[in-house]
Design a protein around this nucleic acid. Structure first.
Lengths: 174, 174
DNA sequence: GGTGCCATGTAACGCGTTACATGATTAT
DNA sequence: ATAATCATGTAACGCGTTACATGGCACC
């Protein structure tokens, strides 16, 4: 849902071949998003299949596979801007895995509600420590994107922790 | 990642056939999680393939397909409890679609940062209204799960809105 | 001699999602 | 008449993910 468009975005800067895309991705988006090189080629094929991208030229090289340079198409540009204009994904929280755990635990009586919540809380607190540490290591002026990423993470985890409190309050822990 | 385990949880109550699972799912988890009946059969096959479930008996019926009753296995029970004990998914926020939009928008200069953020904010505010309305219609004592679901949604959207503010502050809007 | 860079991919998996097909029974 | 309920599925798609294969070059 996103890698596709990230590559499209990079190709909108100019034609590139797979390996180049991978390194460009790592430089711009890749701070904390690891991408398997194979996936670049997969995604590129799918983009080509959908007409968002075309193989522009094959650069011959000796003793090395030819470079296959891809370029974005008009349709690809349209798709890119359509995607950019469209707000992001529906509320994840409403389709939440932990919710199912809660229901199973409480309704069907599997496992212990208290420890379910505490396990989750522990994981969030741990994550919180990691994020806070990351935050202290970032120069927000130099790298505002990473700073925002981390800050967003913190805000979310705070919300999650708050929510766990509410779960305990409402479902009781006895 | 979740449906699988939800079905496993329902089967841990006792053997059931696909259609029964679907209705049970709708009753317990399904408040706001719509599930295509076809997916039940898919998932059931996959569970059987992985040995978490077995076909216990086929109940013959006239003028109707036989019922295929599945039962959870020992391995299935183990998997269910393993899953319950394990905290939920890594931080979503760190692998976020909107983050890519931001980067593309700001780094590569596609589209307008201001409207990107505002589109997103509008979507969140709209969602907020929906959630608040839902909240006012729920009897928290009668249906604490749905109430929690909605409250979780609200907490998250609040965090998201807060984060958008920070994005604007840090990246400038000019 | 090993590591890592350059450069290509393929094949398969996992999970969710949807569209389609079949067909009898019962209630409105 | 037609909609809903009961009851089964299959086939395909979409996207992300991973493991595996190939192979030369440069550097330490």
């Amino acid at each position: 849902m996103a890698i596709k468009h990230a590559l499209l975005g990079l190709l909108a800067e100019g034609p590139r071949h797979g390996y180049e895309l991978k390194t460009a991705f790592d430089e711009t988006v890749g701070e904390r998003w690891s991408l398997n090189i194979g996936q670049v080629y997969n995604t590129l094929n799918r983009l080509a299949r959908d007409g968002y991208v075309v193989l522009r030229e094959e650069v011959e090289q000796e003793s090395r596979p030819d470079k296959k340079v891809y370029a974005i198409t008009e349709a690809g540009r349209e798709e890119l801007f359509r995607w950019l204009a469209e707000p992001v994904e529906k509320p994840r929280r409403l389709k939440d895995e932990f919710y199912i755990k809660l229901v199973l635990c409480k309704e069907l009586g599997y496992g212990d509600l208290h420890s379910l919540i505490w396990n989750q809380r522990r994981a969030y607190l741990q994550l919180m420590r990691v994020l806070r540490e990351a935050q202290s290591e970032i120069n927000a002026e130099e790298d505002p994107f990473t700073a925002l990423l981390v800050e967003g993470g913190i805000l979310h985890v705070e919300a999650d922790l708050h929510w766990l409190d509410r779960c305990e309050e409402m479902l009781g822990t006895e």
